[in-house]
């Protein structure tokens, strides 16, 4: 079992990375867009700790930074990518939502990634690598029909896909009540896919549930549908937020950092904070210094 302090440090790094991005945006140092993971860190960190970056794969969505950092630990590649630097993970071609490094991929069209993750699982199964193909999707993405085509195929063909549904109760500005009918969990059960569902921000609980899910996939080779109810504190993207501030405030009591941090000694927490700030400062400095992406000379 990975130490709580380690999980906490990863979550704090994601939190501070994302806050730094929003900061850099307001300073005009970033262009394009970003969808931060602030508030949802326990999901990515808790789940991805069970994946082996050398073997397993992740296909992530528009809100991919937390997943990317938890899987690759490549903060410099991500930050310089978002800054449009040549040193970015995709040389500045992808930007925030189109990342690739090793066994990590992300794409910005909702739903689109789910069949691709299914195909990855099919390939890995044929190659006999034992890899688990993880795909992250939001509540709003459950409106995309290809999700269900993929569930059908993953179940039919017994493919090692971990579907992680992060229900943060909003799709951009639209509350889940206005975009989703029925049960998230029963959607997968109807396809004969094993499921679990948690309404928590406790990284230890998520870590344990994800551990069971990944172990089941490795054991059976069959898909698993993990539903994580969650909340984002930051705007959907940069400044677009019309939620009731009281609602956001109430949720802050369940901030995953507060929940996990309460179980650590003060000095340990402080030491972690110092390390995180230092690493972040170094990352920002290095990325700011890196050369911008340039078109190849004709």
């Amino acid at each position: 079992m990975t130490a709580l302090a380690t999980l906490y440090e990863r979550m704090l790094f994601v939190r501070r990375f994302e806050e730094t991005l929003l900061d850099l945006f307001s300073q005009g140092k970033l262009v394009g867009t970003t969808h931060t993971y602030i508030g949802q860190e326990a999901n990515g960190v808790g789940v991805i700790d069970h994946l082996d970056p050398a073997v397993d794969t992740i296909f992530s969505n528009h809100r991919c930074h937390g997943h990317y950092l938890a899987f690759t630990d490549d903060a410099f590649g991500l930050l310089s990518e978002v800054m449009g630097k040549a040193t970015g993970t995709c040389g500045g071609k992808g930007g925030s939502q189109h990342l690739c490094r090793g066994n990590f991929y992300s794409n910005g069209v909702l739903g689109s990634i789910v069949p691709v993750a299914t195909g990855i699982a099919l390939a890995e199964k044929k190659k006999g690598t034992g890899a688990v193909s993880t795909v992250f999707l939001g509540d709003g993405t459950l409106g995309e029909g290809v999700t269900y085509e993929s569930l059908n195929m993953a179940s039919l063909w017994t493919l090692p896909v971990l579907f992680v549904v992060e229900n943060n109760h909003y799709a951009q500005s639209t509350p889940v009540e206005l975009e989703l009918a029925g049960s998230i969990r029963a959607r997968a059960e109807a396809f004969g896919v094993e499921t679990d569902e948690l309404d928590t921000t406790d990284v230890e609980e998520i870590h344990a549930a994800a551990g069971r899910a990944v172990a089941r996939i490795r054991e059976t080779g069959a898909p698993f549908w993990l539903v994580l109810h969650t909340y984002r504190f930051s705007p959907h993207s940069k400044g677009d937020d019309n939620r009731d501030p009281a609602e956001i405030e109430a949720r802050r009591e369940r901030d995953p950092l507060t929940v996990a941090g309460a179980r650590l000694e003060d000095d340990e927490r402080e030491a972690i904070a110092v390390r995180v700030e230092q690493r972040l400062a170094e990352t920002v400095a290095a990325a700011e210094e890196a050369p911008f992406a340039e078109p190849e000379a004709a």
């Binding site: 195909g119 990855i120 390939a123 993929s150």
Partner: peptide
């Protein structure tokens, strides 16, 4: 299955991973 919208993606995923 009769799932063309996804099958293109499934094939893409396979191709990304060496098939």
């Amino acid at each position: 299955p009769i799932s063309e919208a996804s099958l293109f993606g499934v094939a893409a995923g396979m191709a990304l991973r060496g098939r």
